[in-house]
Amino acid sequence: MTESLDSERMACWRAYIEASQRLFTQLEDDLRADGELSFADYHVLVLLSEAPGQRLRMGELAGRLVFSPSRLTYQISTMQRRGLVTRQSCPGDRRGSEAVLTAAGLLTLREAAPGHLASVRRHLMDDLDDAEVTTLTRVFDRLGRRLRADRDATSTHRDT
């Protein structure tokens, strides 16, 4: 049987779960109210806007979003219908495909960004001091690296 958490760690876990869910919900509600974007829509637009040529292979995009291939296909299809992205064959590898940011998608991102950043400030950053920002960055960077490594090791193990 797995050892239970002590009361301090249980309180930390519950506070994290409840606050992170409330934060995510609030940020998404604000995005939808300001520009009819979901959090996933916004994240796709940001990642594509930062990529060379404003395009990413579908597999890489799925990995960065932590989406399954089928979930990404659905996400890109809905955004494509709205004119925010297109899906094109990879120039060097016709078997693969890339998600490509459209001019309309870039404009949508530019219009949504100020409101989203204000929401992030209001609901998270303005409540943190510099030491807390540093600590949270260190903790979540470390957790992210470990979880990516664990996932990569699991998928490599399944493939062999």
Rank of each mutant, 00 (worst) to 15 (best):
L47F: 11
A149D: 11
A19E: 10
C12E: 13
S155H: 10
L147K: 11
L107R: 10
F67N: 01
R121H: 09
E132R: 12
A19W: 05
T154P: 00
E36N: 15
S119Y: 08
M125R: 07
M10P: 00
R9M: 15
D126C: 06
E111A: 14
A153C: 02
E3F: 15
R81H: 09
R9D: 09
V46H: 02
A62K: 09
R148M: 13
L23C: 05
D129G: 13
H123K: 06
G59N: 10
D127G: 06
T156F: 13
T78E: 12
R22P: 01
G63L: 07
T78Q: 14
A51P: 07
S77H: 14
A62P: 06
R22F: 03
G92T: 14
E8Y: 11
S7T: 09
R81F: 05
H123S: 01
E98G: 01
R64G: 01
P114L: 10
D159N: 14
R32K: 11
L128P: 07
M1W: 03
A104Y: 04
D159I: 05
L65K: 01
L48G: 06
A40I: 12
A103T: 15
G144R: 09
A104V: 09
L31P: 02
L61W: 11
R82G: 06
R94E: 02
H123C: 00
L48I: 06
D126M: 11
S89W: 04
T108Y: 06
R81M: 13
F67Q: 03
L117Q: 04
S20W: 02
L124R: 02
A153L: 11
T86S: 08
S49N: 15
R87D: 00
V139N: 05
A51H: 15
L31F: 02
T135R: 15
L136E: 03
S155P: 00
H43D: 05
V44H: 07
F67D: 01
L65E: 00
D41M: 03
L128D: 00
E3Y: 14
T25V: 05
A51T: 09
Q21W: 09
M79P: 05
E18T: 06
L23K: 06
A113I: 03
R110F: 02
E18K: 12
V120K: 02
R121L: 09
L56I: 10
R121E: 04
F24A: 13
S4F: 15
L37P: 00
L101H: 06
Q75V: 03
R57L: 15
L109F: 08
S70Q: 14
F39H: 02
A118R: 06
M125L: 15
D141A: 14
D30T: 09
A51L: 15
A15N: 12
A99F: 07
R71I: 02
A153D: 01
R110L: 07
V66S: 04
P52H: 10
S70H: 11
D141T: 11
L136D: 04
R81W: 02
D93V: 00
S7V: 11
L147C: 06
L101R: 05
E111H: 10
D130H: 15
A62L: 04
P52A: 12
M58H: 11
R57T: 04
H43C: 02
